[in-house]
Design a protein around this nucleic acid. Structure first.
Lengths: 120, 120
DNA sequence: GGAATGCTCAACCATATGGTTTACAATAGA
DNA sequence: TCTATTGTAAACCATATGGTTGAGCATTCC
């Protein structure tokens, strides 16, 4: 839980450490896009954009489906979930104040549900 | 909300894209550590480790307190929270009900690529 | 004062990264 | 069949990165 396969997280975080690639992911959130569609917003050669797509693909953030000469890309969100899981470990450092509140609320929930819903 | 100051996220994700630095953050989660304490677990010169600390510091993930010749570092979790905020945008892609929807999308993919590539 | 400690800085090196251009392969369309 | 489109691959370039060593600055300790 603590380590999360280092090489894997290296690739994911590295892929995210570039605004061009983050923009591409953002567009992919709207749905499948071809490589040239992904490249279109950027002042960059198609070959350059294609390299970015490859970085995303190698990090497992994008899946490619080849149909004829078109390469359609789609978001592979599971890998983002794993990055978030890594970050989640640190959540307690910025939600500390909420923790006490939450503990309190949970204690209340517990007390309230003890009579009604024993399973929780 | 969508863009999150690109250069800032560049620095944060880049800082996280290295297992040495992630380990350092993990140790800092236990509490304040000096630079040489942070360096100790790694087969690396102190100067090398010091560079990693600087990367973390520049990304705003670590705050340094100088006391005499000692440099004490502590976790600055707020910046991690911002990285997580960026990731949260994509949460819907892994937390939605996958079963029926995903099956549907994959069936569409299948049908689509069969139609586009009749030659096989 | 003198020596050891903690740390940074500067110079250097090998490799990675982000971009380009050119060439090419495959597919689609006239 | 000829041509345009989509995309990758290769070669190249400038800069960034991750590491080293050695020098040096404060600080602490004897």
């Amino acid at each position: 839980m603590v380590e999360h396969s280092p090489a894997f997280l290296d690739a994911v975080f590295h892929a995210l450490a570039d605004s061009t690639r983050r923009s591409m992911l953002h567009r992919l959130a709207q749905g499948e896009q071809s490589v040239s569609e992904l490249a279109e917003p950027f002042a960059m050669s198609l070959a350059g954009a294609s390299k970015h797509v490859k970085v995303l693909e190698k990090a497992g953030l994008v899946r490619r489906r080849i149909a004829g000469r078109m390469h359609y890309c789609r978001l592979e969100a599971a890998r983002l979930a794993e990055a978030q899981a890594w970050l989640r470990y640190y959540e307690r450092f910025w939600t500390r104040r909420l923790d006490t509140l939450e503990a309190l609320l949970e204690a209340e929930d517990q007390a309230a549900s003890e009579g009604e819903n024993p399973k929780g």
